[in-house]
Design a protein around this nucleic acid. Structure first.
Length: 115
DNA sequence: TACTTGACCGTAT
DNA sequence: CATACGGCCAAGT
């Protein structure tokens, strides 16, 4: 048996999966690219409920200011930092310089206008 | 059903 | 730099 997953979550997962290695995106950017402008919180909700075993580059999703969402010192926090650095992303003091690594913000605004 | 939480965000002070 | 606030609203209790 199989229960249909919320289509919005599917679109969110797809948007996250589309982030290229070595790049990152904010929750808001992912929401916009999933056709859900202004609903960054839903991205967090979806991410929290990521099905076990789904190979999702969750670590490429950060706060809009580039900081890691998970609590400082938590296991997730350390793993996220490690995995980002492993693919060349600059993580300093729990934060990534978005100007240099984030997906194009202007494109997201353009997508927003199409909604 | 009602109320609270929260892997958020932009703006204001 | 740090709080505060309103907007957002699915999930959890």
């Amino acid at each position: 048996m199989r229960i249909k997953m919320d289509p919005r979550h599917q679109r969110i997962y797809a948007a996250i999966a589309a982030i290229p290695p070595g790049r990152v995106a904010s929750y808001g950017q992912i929401a916009a690219r999933a056709g859900l402008p202004g609903r960054a919180r839903l991205v967090g909700t979806a991410l929290r409920g990521t099905p076990d075993g789904m190979p999702l580059p969750w670590f490429r999703v950060l706060h809009a200011d580039g900081s890691i969402a998970l609590p400082r010192g938590s296991r997730g926090f350390r793993e996220q930092s490690r995995r980002l650095r492993a693919e060349g992303v600059d993580v300093r003091n729990g934060r990534v310089p978005m100007a240099a690594f984030a997906l194009d913000h202007d494109l997201d605004r353009a997508l927003w206008c199409l909604e």
